[in-house]
Design a binder for these strands. Structure first.
Lengths: 238, 238
DNA sequence: ACGGATTAAATGGTTCGACCATTCCTATTG
DNA sequence: CAATAGGAATGGTCGAACCATTTAATCCGT
């Protein structure tokens, strides 16, 4: 019902004041805060305490700290990465199995594809087709280039997430994908057939997105992700 | 392609070492780290620098710091709150609108219901029906009890997430739900009709889950969540 | 011998002053 | 005029001291 009220800590007070200034718009993204030595005077605190506050704000993704003269604490635009890395930490901490990650990913990728199919503009489609071209190139180069192929595969899915315009999908997709990717090298003995199958999947997805067929995009994306799970087979129980 | 390599910072090195120890299991939740004065000797650094590292770990949600003798840095169980507060920050930063959250939630809840329909055991169904009973009670008590009704609603969705057996759904659902719930009071003028509609939705979902009809469960859950979005109407674009 | 009050020790929180490392600007010099 | 050297501002680190909080042991009165 209530939250712990250990407001005794001075640095916490400093954090809240600066955070409030940022969220209220008094401090705009790109603005540079005064130097530590000036801030310490303003807050009437010691430099060490002030630096602890800055450390927290930096970790929250609200500021970025640059070195040298003219450096200092710069207000960041968006703490998107922070949520992503937080989710990443949670996934690793809870030791979420590959099976669970894969299952969740199937849903997310499917929904992303379906929404993207509804919202993709001509420029988006053009971008996707360029990426597809890259993928085809790496497929033709053979399994030695599976790493590059996977990289393009990732970019395509990221592009789809971006097309939705919903940051939630972007963040969640990235966290899930990063954690799954750790298993690729460990589990997959790549074959030319797998590269071809995956390339074909990507083609199908992009085609459905281009045509605005959201159901078909969902289905193709689902199949695409599911294929990875099948590749990994019984070894999926990490 | 590469990440910034400002590894110059000593406290960052300390953070990574402790984080690694926690994630690898060398440090278990509940364990207490050595005192700051001991840690500073181990890492051969100053206390100020060490404290900056602890501040980061605390902000990441990996440790909790207690005062007094016998206090110190205790490894926490799960950094879920950190993700929630990160999302909260993103919302207040207006990087994520309620519409975005709602859209994402529709997908997650739908998938959760569908999977739960496949995996629910008789005990799970029994539990759901008990919760449904509670919901009916609060519905009959009228709009003054909307808060309690929403609480039961939340418990039902949490139960569904648990039935999936997939921690990703549990975690993501909670993070999204916590952040959406804050806006209920702000946006919703509850009416008896809304309570009834929602109760009926919950009944439909549970019935579909009980019968193992995953498609129907997905559809009903989707409609249920969508109804909330409609209630909030145009005000959703916070 | 028991129980409450007092004291002591351990620990996190804060402060101060100093110095180092990096970066940018400026003045010097060829 | 350009390359270089130096200086100043700024974040990063260090060490020692002191304060505040908490726990446990100790002491004292009954």
């Amino acid at each position: 019902m209530f939250r712990a009220a250990k407001q005794n800590r001075i640095f916490q007070d400093v954090v809240e004041q600066i955070e409030e200034a940022i969220l209220s718009g008094q401090l705009q993204p790109g603005d540079t805060l005064p130097s530590e030595r000036d801030l310490k005077d303003m807050f009437q605190t010691s430099r060490g305490t002030l630096r602890e506050a800055l450390r927290v704000l930096e970790q929250k993704g609200l500021i970025e700290i640059k070195l040298g003269v003219g450096g200092g604490s710069v207000v960041k635009a968006a703490p998107l990465e922070q949520v992503c890395s937080g989710l990443d930490l949670l996934i690793r901490f809870q030791k979420i199995s590959l099976r669970h990650l894969a299952e969740f990913r199937e849903d997310v990728e499917s929904s992303v594809a379906a929404i993207a199919a509804q919202r993709a503009g001509s420029e988006d489609v053009h971008n996707l087709e360029d990426l597809l071209e890259d993928a085809r190139g790496y497929r033709d180069l053979g399994v030695d280039y599976w790493r590059e192929f996977v990289e393009v595969d990732k970019k395509i899915h990221q592009a789809l997430a971006s097309i939705t315009g919903n940051p939630m999908y972007i963040v969640v997709h990235q966290a899930v994908h990063d954690n799954i990717q750790r298993y690729y090298e460990q589990f997959l003995p790549w074959t030319p057939e797998m590269l071809s199958e995956n390339y074909q999947d990507l083609c199908d997805i992009v085609r459905a997105v281009k045509a605005g067929h959201n159901d078909k995009a969902r289905e193709k994306a689902h199949r695409h992700v599911q294929r990875f799970s099948e590749y990994m087979g019984s070894r999926i129980d990490g």
